[in-house]
Structures are given as C-alpha cells and as structure tokens.
C-alpha cells in the first residue's frame, strides 16, 4: 500500500498556506523544509528539548511530535512571525538586553515558550517562569538570564 500526499490548509504567521505532504510528516519538517521557516530547530526529535516549539492555535507545542495531518485549519505561529517587521517583541528585546541568548539554538523555542507563558500568566513569579519554561532545554545559559529576561518583559 502506498501512502498518498494530502493537502493541508492552514495559516502560518498570518498567511494562508496549502501544503502538500504525507499525513504523518512531522510539522517540524514541513515548516522547515517546505516553507523554509528554519527558526525552529531539531534538538532531539522526541519532545524533550523544545527547540522545535511553535504556537499551534495559541498553544505551545513541540513541532517534532505533531503529524502535519493534525494542523488542518489551524493557526500556526513560528518565531519568524513574532517580531512586527523591524519591531522586536518585548520578549525578544528583553532576551537581547539580559543576555538570554548565547548560542541561540534554543532561543526561538525559548522565546515562544516565554510568550506563551506570559499570555497565560501576565505576572509570573520566578517559580512560575521556571515551571513555564521547563519543557525547553538550554545548555548554555543556566537559565538565569532567561528568567531575568522574562520577568523584565512582563513588566513592560
């Protein structure tokens, strides 16, 4: 039995897309290879690191675990859709000011996780931030500067 490609209609970063892909293709690959949105990264491919995070209908998900068939009709935001033109999002600016990005490989996922956290909880305590970001691994920063960035961003 051969599996056929299907067409999936969805919105990515406010633009409507019609994507041809195998139903079980990972959202990660479809976005990175098909749409050339390479901001999200593959750190583990098994839902552990969060480097592949995107917002799916406003919820933070690991795109390496999402079969593309599941995003039909969905609204997807990737890191490329966060800044408004040249205007950085407050979280992005705060990551810059506080040194929240070092090698930068976890940063797109981390920024999306922070944004998603602040949407659910606009005034998080440091403990909330720690829990909210626990699905995103960073090997460079030890997280301290990321906490500082998130706490400052919510004061804006």
């Amino acid at each position: 039995m051969t599996i056929e490609k299907i067409t999936i209609d969805c919105t990515v970063n406010h633009t409507a897309h019609s994507i041809r892909a195998y139903p079980m293709a990972r959202l990660l690959d479809v976005l990175r290879e098909g749409l050339r949105l390479t901001g999200m990264k593959e750190g583990c491919g098994e839902g552990e690191c969060g480097a592949c995070s995107v917002l799916l209908n406003g919820e933070l998900v690991n795109s390496c675990l999402v079969p593309v068939a599941q995003v039909s009709g969905a609204n997807i935001t990737t890191i490329e859709g966060i800044a408004a033109g040249d205007q950085l999002h407050a979280v992005q600016q705060s990551f810059l000011t506080h040194g929240g990005a070092q090698c930068g490989i976890c940063t797109p996922g981390m920024v999306l996780a922070a944004i998603s956290l602040l949407e659910r909880n606009p005034n998080p305590t440091e403990a909330d931030v720690r829990t909210g970001l626990a699905g995103n691994l960073c090997r460079c920063t030890g997280y301290m500067k990321i906490f500082a960035a998130v706490v400052e961003a919510c004061q804006k």
Binding site: E80, F95, A101, G104, T107, V111
Partner: peptide, 10 residues
C-alpha cells in the same frame, strides 16, 4: 551580543 538580533528572531 553582536549577532543577538538574528538569534532572537530565528
């Protein structure tokens, strides 16, 4: 950071 902007925007 010099290349920070590209890192936070992906």
């Amino acid at each position: 950071r010099k290349e920070g902007r590209d890192k936070v925007t992906g």
